[in-house]
Design a protein around this nucleic acid. Sequence first.
DNA 1: ATTCTTACA
DNA 2: TGTAAGGA
Length: 249
Amino acid sequence: MGTDETTPPREYRMTELAEAAGITVRTLRYYRERKLIPPPRREGRVAWYDDRHLARLRTIAALLERGHTLGGIAELIAAFEGGRGVAEILGLGGAIAAPWSRETLVRLAPEELADHFADQATPENLAASLDIGYLAVDGEELVHVSSRLLDVSRRLVREGVPLPAILAAGREIRAHADALAATFTAIVREHLLPDDVPPSPEAVEHVQRTLDRLRPLARTVVEAEVALAMDRRVRADVESWLDDGVTPR
DNA sequence: ATTCTTACA
DNA sequence: TGTAAGGA
């Protein structure tokens, strides 16, 4: 029926945009001075804003609502527009790209993120996801570094697990995974590589190929051990539950 | 006369 | 952040 909201390519002048966003014209100009919104299209004297500006203002309002400072918001926005700066702002440096190079990147429009995680797609969770390295920013798009981890996160959220809990678990598992990787590489280094390591291109390639060849074995070991550990864990929990007659933990 | 900016509080 | 004054 009448669900035909004709809104797409509209343009606003200052007063219209301010009213639509629920702020004063003075505030709008202030945001623009602080680079919180992009410059409007100038037609002589008049400034024309579009829906992107309105969306940005809504974002700013939401962030302010959650207690963020204008300065912090400005940093985030600058990072988004820079496309590469978020990791630096959060103090992660280049820790995002390299370790995940073999994973499948998933490009996400911001709307898709809300689509996947519904009300859990909050700025806090977004920041946490950036911090842990699950998400990176590329221009106006978000990039998830692992299609598999994204899928698991999505399913867990649908099952009712809060996203902050998932991200916290991700950090924990990341630390354990680092330790496992250290164990595997130590074994390779000690037993499968020559003692003296002359820094030749051939040697580097040999190391790479050796690690690639053993990677599936490491994965199998971890899978099997986790399966066994899960069995032990569940058994232990159930036993203590029966003994105490009380739900553990 | 309208639309914005500047400047000051 | 409001508002008065002034440029285009």
